[in-house]
Design a protein around this nucleic acid. Structure first.
Length: 736
RNA sequence: UGGGGCGUGGUGCAAUUGGCAGCACACCGGAUUCUGACUCCGUAGGUUCCAGGUUCGAGUCCUGGCGCCCCAACCA
């Protein structure tokens, strides 16, 4: 199972008994566009996580905006989820089915005094909201009575107001530092036709109001969304709390998927389609799941890709090469191998004998047995134009004048002549099959090329796709359209071996030495059309080529350290001297007199000044002093004991960590007793080494790094042990 | 009166919660090969954003900086 911070959280929730171990997620798209590779991450996460924990994942359409949504998108989304291999059973839900319930709760909030109808114009609304720097102003109707607002809300719902005349607002806090909490709108008037609810409604809930409550209605436990909704979480919680759910769902955010060379913004995708820069939403160059699918990318590759990307909270951009790798890896295992020539060059091979068929395996032997297919062969064949040159570079392993090459599955040939047209252009080659003797002599090291029999060749269209955008981050340095790759789609007429006359649409193949291809729906019997999914990696680096310039050393990405901070104020310097501590600690002491007082109290109980100050400003820095479970005097006495050598420092640290389970003094005594009862240190070391035989062997072999590991393990077993003594004994044991 | 997040080789993520900084991709070598693919070995690449502090020991804890992202749609 994949492990990420979200799954870890689910495990913790389950351990704590939250939701009684139940796990329910949901994939909540708004049906206003075609789903893309970014959605695939969310789909795989939500469905995958539910499956990992024996739960379920709902498919819910968050359709709260009648202006942008359409059934076409609903279907596209369902197709994509199914194609990716996930099943939502009968749990296909729509926020628009919850409109009645959501409205009823809106009346409830109004009656509770938690919502009101506001008649501010959009412009005024904006003015009143304030800025990130300063608070907003209340709406004039903010403090009107619940009864008044209920009547107004009902009139809103009845269509008595024009669009934009008023909105229902949650009454929260116009001064909240979180802008989302400044009385956000819950409902707005839109006298528009809804693709599912028709004209039944003229007020529509906002995302924040509808989303969390929809989750709650369904019994969702873990509501996963992308990072930009972090600020919305507070509002999410507010709504489910005000409506009164006992065990509300909990929102967790993760980083959305971003890919180099790819743009997924709905706006830009739409532009590409509308301006006919691509051939529709399912153009194989599009990052839509429909496009990826048509291109021939297997769903399993997408899943593997998403898995490798992982789930975290840091914004990041994944290299496109990782997607390509996942695609190749998947197709390599399953795609039958075929012989296809992109740019045919006629060749006559003397001595090849009469026309016949040979049987070739579909897959390399190491991938297991395969059925194989018949490949016709005669003296007249096509080879790839680019597999011949009359000026070979060093390292060239293909055909050249007088050169020898292997025809895939069909033996060795030598080039004996060129045929050129009146203009001098190459129009064909003459070759001769090598005799058995010559062939063994020519032996190893000859290159292998692909070919197709002329008499039985199937004409085919090959669509060679490249990146839609050549730029790594399209649209960042110039207009997006200027970053379009001018040659992202090349159409060539090639020839395929006979077995490819009528491939199943969508079937994936490897055309040997060219790449992975898939049959496009545009195929017709006798004339297939293939999309190149991805090229094979090309390891050929001509020896004569300039040695590649060393990749430019990346600019040091960290700025130089800022100029040294100015000298500390005199009172800090004084405190540092008085306490014998660093300026950092002194600053804390000066800034928070209560801590200084606490430290003084510990000193009064015998603690060395520096130790007392360091303790209260480091180990204890995050804990409010009044919530400390022990007195400064208690800590001071302990520090004094440590200073006098009567108490191991490690034991004190341990006691501090466990102090919740008893007073400090009690903890110390308990740990002391445990330490006294524990076996001698060298015996513990023996036991420890025995428990980790592999690491122990490496330690004995002289791997000094393992010392830290064992020291750590030892400290866990014997917290009071003197570190120096432990290290000495451990080293002795290792040497033994 | 701003708030919420995030910083680990080129990229994406890990690090048993204070104890060996690792994995994958990319890159570069080499071996193998009837696909210049695949496979297999290997090299290189790190001031864990910076500066301090605590500790025997810090990617992890503390203090202070710096940088980047998100939030002021009646979009989601």
């Amino acid at each position: 199972m994949a492990s990420d911070f979200i799954r870890q959280k689910v495990i913790e929730d389950n351990r704590a008994g939250k939701y009684a171990g139940r796990v329910m997620t949901r994939f909540p798209p708004e049906p206003n566009g075609y789903p893309h590779i970014g959605h695939a991450k969310s789909i795989c996460l939500n469905f995958g996580l539910a499956a990992d924990f024996g739960g379920v994942c709902n498919l819910r359409f968050d359709d709260t905006n009648p202006l942008t949504e359409d059934m076409e998108y609903v279907e596209a989304i369902k197709d994509a989820v199914r194609w990716l291999g996930f099943d939502w059973g009968d749990r296909e839900y729509y926020a628009s089915d919850y409109y009645e319930q959501l409205y009823a709760w809106a009346e409830k909030l109004v009656l509770q005094g938690d919502a009101y109808v506001c008649f501010l114009s959009e412009e005024q609304f904006k003015d009143c909201r304030g800025t990130v720097q300063g608070p907003g102003k209340p709406s004039p109707t903010r403090d009107t009575s619940p009864e008044q607002n209920l009547a107004l809300l009902r009139r809103m719902k009845a269509g008595e107001f024009d669009e934009g005349a008023c909105v229902l607002r949650a009454k929260i806090d116009m001064a909240s530092p979180n802008m989302k909490m400044r009385d956000p709108p819950m409902y707005r008037i839109k006298k528009a036709h809804h693709y599912r609810r028709g004209d039944a409604w003229c007020i529509y809930p906002m995302y924040d109001y509808a989303h969390g409550l929809s989750d709650a209605i369904e019994g969702v436990t873990h509501s996963l969304c992308t990072l930009e909704f972090e600020n919305n979480r507070e509002l999410y919680d507010w709504y489910v709390q005000k409506v009164g759910f006992a065990q509300p769902p909990e929102q967790t955010e993760f980083a959305r998927l971003d890919l180099t060379h790819v743009i997924v913004s709905k706006r830009y995708l739409r532009r590409l389609v509308e301006e006919r820069r691509v051939d529709g939403w399912d153009d194989p160059r599009m990052p839509t799941l429909a496009g990826l699918r048509r291109r021939g990318v297997p769903a399993a590759a997408i899943r593997a890709f998403v898995e490798r990307v992982g789930v975290a909270r840091a914004n990041s951009v994944v290299e496109y090469a990782l997607l390509e790798h996942a695609i190749r890896e998947e197709l390599h295992k399953s795609a039958p191998r075929r012989l296809v020539v992109e740019q045919p060059l006629p060749v006559v091979v003397e001595g090849l004998g009469p026309a016949r068929s040979l049987v070739a395996a579909d897959l390399p032997a190491e991938l297991g047995p395969s059925e194989g297919r018949e490949v016709p062969l005669s003296e007249a064949i096509f080879i790839e134009r680019s597999d011949y040159t009359d000026a070979p570079v060093p390292g060239w392993k293909r055909l050249s004048p007088g050169g020898v090459v292997r025809l895939r599955h069909a033996g060795l040939i030598r080039c004996v002549g060129e045929d050129r047209g009146p203009d001098g252009a190459l129009i064909g080659l003459r070759c001769a099959k090598l005799s058995e003797g010559e062939a063994t002599a020519a032996g190893k090291g000859v290159g292998t090329i692909h070919w197709v029999d002329q008499a039985t060749a199937v004409p085919c269209t090959l669509r060679i796709y490249e990146l839609l955008f050549a730029a790594e981050r399209p649209g960042t340095e110039r207009d997006l359209l200027e970053d379009l790759h001018p040659d992202s789609k090349k159409v060539v007429q090639g020839v395929a071996e006979a077995s490819l006359a009528a491939p199943a649409v969508g079937a994936g193949f490897q055309f040997e030495r060219l790449g992975f291809f898939a049959a496009d729906p545009d195929s017709r019997p006798g004339h297939p059309v293939f999309n190149r999914v991805v090229a094979l990696k090309d390891g050929f680096v001509p020896k004569a080529a300039e040695p590649k310039a060393a990749p430019a050393k990346a600019e040091p990405k960290r700025p130089a350290a800022p100029a040294k901070a100015e000298a500390a104020p005199p009172e800090v310097l004084a405190a540092a001297a008085a306490w014998g501590v660093s300026e950092t600690v002194a600053r804390a002491l000066v800034g928070e007199p209560a801590r200084a007082a606490w430290a003084e109290a510990a000193v009064a109980a015998g603690a060395p000044r520096a130790d007392a100050a360091n303790l209260v400003c480091n180990e204890l820095a995050r804990i409010p002093l009044d919530s400390l479970a022990f007195e400064p005097a208690e800590a001071g006495a302990a520090l004094a004991a440590v200073a006098a050598g009567a108490l191991p420092r490690g034991l004190l640290r341990q006691a501090l960590a466990e102090v919740e389970r008893g007073g400090l003094g009690a903890r110390i005594e308990a740990l002391r007793a445990a330490a006294a009862a524990a076996p001698a240190l060298d015996a513990q070391i023996d036991a420890l080494l025995g428990d980790h035989p592999a690491e122990a062997a490496r330690l004995r072999a002289g791997d000094q790094k393992l010392l830290g590991f064992f020291l750590g393990q030892l400290k866990r077993r014997a917290p009071s042990a003197d570190p120096a003594e432990a290290r000495r004994l451990l080293q002795a044991a290792a040497g033994a």
